[in-house]
Design a binder for these strands. Structure first.
Length: 424
RNA sequence: GUGAGCGUAGCCCAGCGGUCAAGGCGCCUGGCUGUGGCCCAGGAUAUCGAGGGUUCGAAUCCCUCCGCUCACCCCA
């Protein structure tokens, strides 16, 4: 028996209301900010991600689905959406458009990971990217968009800061000017405490010192508490940017909190980084994460172009909608169920169902030759508002019985008038 | 890649060495030869995850593998 590959899942009809809801809200917020939808391919040349995301990142090192296609070119199932958007921005000369260019996308991303609650090998992201503008007000706009989304989804209703962690976490990790100096200092500081660090952190010290900060091991946390903060080592421009952003966020009255240990796993982030966490804490609690990536466009072959954005995980959002008990609109049930008795009536029923559908009425039927009882039972269980019954008697008189499933009342009406009746 | 827990019908699950593997939901049929929801009666569906071993005998014990879940790493 075949099964969906590990870390993938079928999104069954019962789940669709959640997806429709989230996607509809996402599109609505993006549109309200003037962001336009873009679709990039599900796979790209492997090099795009190696250069864009960073060769030393976990994603590139161990999580990419990379394969040679039939011509031998190395392709990668996209592990994230930002690098492809930058590629498209360059490929289509979007730098010539009025800046910033505001884009969003909705689609799957692939990472080879051990699946877990809220983590999949194929998952779906909403990505929002604004390219070509360095002003911190654009950072604020993007954060504001994310905030509005969660607001609309109903995940922030009464979100009380009293319980647990704040919802919006913010930090600045500097730029290519000031970050190296900070990292050097960080490394120097940690080097004095190697004995207290976990084995992971000992290797992080060499390869990716920033990530030392968010290790959860008690020993490492103790060291991290006393270590220098990136915010204290920003260069003048980065400092100004961060202060500016905070002014705007305060003006917008977002209850964010600065988290000195917030660093992100993708190498392309500069300056602003942020995450949105749900009210209910869980292992994979981050629903959205992003920040500024002023060096990415250049890294994938363009001119230096500042940009900000974020990605939100749809599976995680849905997980949290369920945990929070958010009610989503359900998909409607059929209006009419067509029941037939006898072969001649069956033919006529087929025809009548088609006529009704052309008038925009949702009609379902069982079509197998079952008892009227069985057909009505099915009409009931699919939630049809009306059952239409067509047997020899109706066939003879050109009529059909319309039964209201809620009240049990039924009327015999001419076949050419059913449409009008049901449309009411 | 590491660690832990779990695999019995479409779903939830009882059974934990010895009659035909129990029950609930769902599905089908009938009670009502053309009338649903409730009720009643009946029915179908399980290589008990796979392979090997122990035993007179294994869904039950042991081993291996596979899968699922949760957590770590990391991330949406």
């Amino acid at each position: 028996m075949y099964k969906a590959p590990r870390g993938t899942e079928d999104i069954l009809p019962a789940e669709q209301p959640y997806w429709r809801f989230v996607e509809a809200q996402a599109e609505a917020v993006c549109r309200s900010y003037g962001y336009q939808r873009i679709e990039t391919p599900m796979f790209e040349e492997a090099g795009l991600f190696e250069r864009g995301v960073g060769a030393a990142s976990d994603i590139v090192e161990k999580e990419m689905y990379t394969f040679p296609d039939r011509s031998g070119d190395l392709m990668t199932l996209r592990p994230e959406g930002t690098a492809p958007v930058c590629r498209a921005y360059l490929e289509h000369g979007m730098a010539q458009l009025p800046q910033p260019v505001r884009l969003y996308y909705l689609g799957p991303a692939f990472r080879y990971e051990r699946p877990q609650a809220g983590r999949f090998r194929q998952h779906h992201q909403l990505g929002v990217e604004a390219l070509g503008e360095a002003d911190p007000a654009l950072d604020a706009e993007v954060i504001s968009l994310a905030w509005d989304l969660f607001q609309r989804l109903g995940l922030m209703v009464g979100a009380p800061r009293s319980i647990g962690a704040p919802l919006l976490k913010l930090n600045s990790i500097g730029c290519s000017q000031c970050r190296p100096r900070y990292i050097a200092e960080l490394r120097a500081n940690y080097s004095g405490h190697v004995e207290q660090l976990c084995t992971d952190c000992r290797s992080r010290l060499e390869r990716n010192p920033l990530r030392l900060l968010d290790c959860k091991q008690p020993g490492c946390q103790a060291v991290a508490g006393a270590v220098p903060r990136s915010l204290d080592h920003l260069c003048h421009d980065c400092r100004q940017h961060f202060d500016g952003l905070q002014v705007y966020l305060k003006a917008l009255a977002f209850p964010y909190s600065v988290d000195h240990r917030l660093v992100r796993g993708l190498d392309y982030y500069t300056r602003t980084v942020f995450e949105v966490q749900p009210v209910v804490e869980g292992a994979q609690s981050t629903m959205a994460g992003g920040g500024r990536y002023d060096g990415l466009v250049e890294a994938v072959g363009g001119k230096p172009t500042p940009a900000v954005g974020f990605a939100a995980g749809l599976e995680r959002i849905i997980l949290n909608l369920k945990r929070a008990g958010v009610h989503v609109p359900d998909s409607g049930s059929p209006v009419a169920f067509m029941a037939h008795l006898g072969p001649a009536a069956k033919e006529r029923a087929l025809l009548l169902a088609g006529e009704l559908r052309r008038r925009g009425i949702t009609v379902v039927a069982a079509w197998s030759d079952r008892s009227l009882r069985a057909q009505l039972r099915q009409a009931n269980s699919v939630g049809a508002r009306y059952a239409l019954i067509l047997g020899d008697a109706e066939l003879a008189s050109g009529s059909v019985v319309v039964r209201d499933m809620a009240t049990g009342e039924q009327q015999t009406v001419p076949q050419d008038q059913v449409g009008g009746r049901l449309a009411l």
